[in-house]
Design a protein around this nucleic acid. Structure first.
Length: 113
RNA sequence: AAAACAUGUCAGAUGACAGCUCUAUGGAGAGGAAAGUCCGGACACUGACCCCAUAAUUUUUUUGUGGGGAAAACGGUAGCGGGUAAUACCCGUCUAGAGUGAUCUACGAGGUGCGAGCAGUGACGGUUUUUUCUGCAAAGGAAAAACUGCCCUAAUACAAAUUGGGGCAAUGCCCAGUGGUAACACAGGGAGUGAAACGGCAAAAUCCUUACUGAAGUGCAAGACCGUGUCUCGCUUUUGCGAGGAGAGUCGCGAUGAUCUGCACGGUAACGUGUAGGCAAGAUAGAUUGUCAUCCCAGAAUCUGUUUACAGGUUCUUGGACAGAAUCCGGCUUAUCGGCAUGUUUUCUAA
RNA sequence: GCGAGUGUCGUAUAACGGUUAUUACACCACCUUGCCAAGGUAGAAAUGGCGGUUCGAUUCCGCUCACUCGCU
């Protein structure tokens, strides 16, 4: 779980980010857009299309959150990012999530290195 | 000891690293169903019948506040007796059926209406028993007998139908008796019918009535406050004032409660009374977790031992039921891997 | 979260508790035509699922599954 200033919290912010650029890899969709703040804020979208059970949706979101948390120091500040996972056929485990997210961030040049 | 039945209860454990929410430095942090939203309440707002008290305007009256009552309308319940804040809930009990049994399942006021079911009668049909055929078996076909409510008699020689007369039983009806708080059960007496008479159905309060009973409607996105944006309108036209109102703001909303746990008493029980102790999640793009290790449970493969089904060991990119609080409680319903405890019944063994 | 509603052939649509479940378009076969369309004749195809009430259920009731809508 990220801190509250590192999270996207309001519907208007989400709508803004969806109008920005996007990239996808392995079922993970990444939207991003510049904001005028000193931190990057990240939001997660896992819809009812992924699973109708609330337990599975919560589980998948927590896995993505904890994967982001390990990568977070390498991300450049000043962006709004939204991550969503829609591949309803299987669960994305923690190790694969870390690999996919680092590759995605390298492609979009949001990392420091 | 085995099998079964009922009720209650647990919902993998420990550690390390990294992190979140509340509280404020000490801690606390998801369920039995948090689910479905099928019922019932609490709570909030809206409108509102009659009576009484009080305050203001005023003295006919109108408005506000508080308290009490009633049943019109609109609902709720429906064998009987209880429990509860309340219920389509719970407990006990009556009736019918299933089971060797513990136990389980089902139904329930009256009228009026319906009636393609049963019976009324011949056939058909149904149930039981016996024989026989097909078939591995399950089951199916054929034949016979008994029962399934009618019987006797006259007009009319016989049969059938119709009409008249007579008789018996069961259910139901009426009367009074015994047991039970009651529903009802048991055992008597009387009248009458051969028929929509009896029995059956009306499943979501509906066609009408009766008895008992509840004021109604909307739901926390209820609702209360604030009045903040490069917002809108009006006045002033610098500041400012008033109205509306986006809202990502505050409260409602996080435990002194129809509360939880233990004990005692009353009651067959649901439950009630008393007493001692506890204060146990409170998020809002939505916390209550992620990863790893060891153990535990289950599964698969394999090895060893012997009674060939058990015991022990090894391995695994194996799996860990159903499922995630959203205002809060009491029920019901649905989903669910496994385990534990208590009580009861049946069978077997031993004394 | 709170509340309301709908499921009938491939699609749209009808039904008093009593039929072999209606109609239109689409589909298939045949006739017609030199060929196609239109037209004619015949045909196949459905009550979301599981239980209950009833002599009998698309209809009434319960549970369940899927879908739709309203309230920031």
């Amino acid at each position: 779980m990220l801190k509250s200033n590192q999270r996207l919290c309001h519907n208007q912010d989400f709508m803004k980010v969806f109008k920005g650029k996007r990239h996808s890899l392995g079922g993970v969709l990444l939207y991003y857009r510049k904001n005028n703040l000193s931190t990057t804020r990240i939001g997660f979208v896992i819809s009812k299309k992924y699973s109708l059970l609330a337990v599975r949706r919560n589980k998948q979101r927590r896995i993505l959150q904890s994967a982001i948390q390990t990568i977070y120091p390498t991300i450049l500040p000043g962006f709004d990012i939204v991550l969503s996972y829609t591949n309803h056929s299987k669960v994305l485990p923690y190790r694969d999530a870390v690999v996919i997210l680092t590759e995605l961030l390298k492609k979009t040049k949001l990392t420091r290195i």
